[in-house]
């Protein structure tokens, strides 16, 4: 089973939920947690373990080889992302604009733009006490998170069987990185808070999930601090409310330290039990 933990609004508790659920569930199940928030990966701050693998991740970028090039300008013409410019005597490639579509490379009549790997980030695989943890980390200045997210998901799929529960910690928002982190999953858990911001961003996330035809449900974090509008919305829209995590400064303090919450906080642990029940014990 694959579950993505996402949210429209940032800072609602995705990482807290993903790390705690993974550790708690791992007492009875095989679990792998993958941090797909590659722009700001935080799950690893809460997980201690042994590094099994660390490798560079690449995207494919055309590289101009001048020998055979006749400067016909076909490459510039077919690039829809303005990543290639033909000058009077050379071809310039702007890697940060390239989407790796291969059109310039494969449509070049002289084969003068072979695709070459260029580093965009790194992947790390850690064996924690009782579960596996995989993290993607985008290099700073890299604009496109989606290709790296895709590679991390592929790594998880290749290295873990279907009987392993796969939990994906998604980036915040509603655009391409979240879509990439959600679309292959069996279920998406949207974490929100009971405030006008939480509700507004939840509606955006729900809209995106519906476009993706994705199954999803809601967890309300910091329950009790705001109003009942998120609950009413879920009721009206017939969205399953999976669990409620109470508002409590102690949780914020445990999180601030970088420790797991559930061993020290019974109501939080109860919320995790609600989740596990909702998913039928992840059988």
């Amino acid at each position: 089973m694959k579950i993505t933990i996402a949210s429209g609004k940032g800072g609602t508790g995705k990482t807290t939920l993903a790390t705690n659920l993974s550790a708690y569930l791992a007492m009875n199940k095989k679990v792998v947690l993958a941090d797909l928030d590659v722009e700001e990966p935080n799950s690893g701050l809460f997980i201690k373990g042994e590094l099994v693998l660390e490798k560079a991740c690449h995207k494919m970028i055309p590289q101009w080889v001048s020998d055979e090039c006749v400067l016909c300008g076909k490459c510039e013409e077919v690039c829809n992302f303005n990543a290639i410019v033909k000058l009077s005597e050379e071809i310039l490639v702007f890697p940060e604009l390239c989407h790796s579509c291969y059109a310039c490379s494969e449509l070049c009549p002289t084969g003068s733009l072979p695709m070459m790997p260029q580093k965009m980030g790194a992947l790390k695989h850690v064996k924690a006490d009782n579960f596996d943890f995989v993290e993607g980390r985008l290099d700073l200045g890299e604009e496109q998170a989606v290709p790296l997210i895709g590679q991390v998901i592929d790594y998880v799929d290749e290295h873990f069987d279907d009987d392993v529960v796969k939990i994906f910690d998604a980036p915040p928002g509603t655009s391409c990185p979240v879509i990439e982190a959600s679309r292959g999953s069996d279920f998406v858990v949207l974490v929100t808070e009971p405030t006008p911001f939480g509700l507004n961003d939840l509606k955006l996330a729900v809209g995106t999930m519906r476009v993706l035809k994705q199954k999803f449900g809601v967890v309300i974090n910091r329950y009790g601090i705001g109003d009942a509008s998120v609950e009413h919305y879920c009721e009206e829209e017939k969205i399953p409310l999976i669990a409620k995590i109470p508002n409590d400064r102690n949780i914020a303090e445990l999180y601030a330290k970088g420790t797991l919450i559930y061993p020290e906080h019974a109501p939080f642990k109860a919320a995790l039990d609600d989740m596990i029940t909702f998913f039928g014990g992840f059988k």
Binding site: G11, E39, E40, P177
Partner: peptide, 10 residues
Amino acid sequence: GSPGTGCPVI
């Protein structure tokens, strides 16, 4: 601004 370090932030 937006969260993260990718294209919206840049």
